[in-house]
């Protein structure tokens, strides 16, 4: 399983895309192939390696769906 810096509480996501706009690395997008319990397309991280853990997504999210981690040192050196 690849390491990912972001955990998304998908069932709270309302697909407003504010995080998609805020992400400076453009690595967030709605997953149009799935629908969550609220009936929205949840957001997903499209490129875990490009994410810098800046947490901009978490700070603009009205539904607080993001938990953000900085990569362990081993991951950064990879």
């Amino acid at each position: 399983m690849p390491w990912a810096p972001i955990v998304i509480a998908e069932d709270h996501c309302k697909g407003c895309e504010l995080c998609v706009t805020a992400c400076p690395k453009h690595v967030l997008a709605l997953d149009r192939s799935r629908i969550n319990v609220l009936g929205y397309h949840p957001v997903e991280l499209t490129d875990a390696a490009a994410c810098t853990s800046c947490a901009f997504c978490a700070r603009v999210c009205p539904d607080a769906v993001f938990t953000v981690w900085a990569a362990p040192r081993e991951e950064l050196q990879r």
């Binding site: 810096p5 509480a9 069932d11 709270h12 309302k14 697909g15 407003c16 895309e17 504010l18 609220l38 929205y40 853990s53 947490a55 978490a58 700070r59 603009v60 999210c61 009205p62 539904d63 607080a64 993001f66 938990t67 953000v68 981690w69 900085a70 990569a71 362990p72 040192r73 081993e74 991951e75």
Partner: peptide, 29 residues
């Protein structure tokens, strides 16, 4: 491995449930 460092997590005071607010509503923030 060295543990991942937590940058941001939902504050515990904010209950872990979906709000009734419309998508994108500023009340959540």
């Amino acid at each position: 491995a060295s543990a991942a460092r937590l940058i941001y997590a939902r504050p515990e005071v904010l209950r872990d449930r979906s709000t009734h607010y419309c998508p994108g509503c500023g009340h959540g923030v």
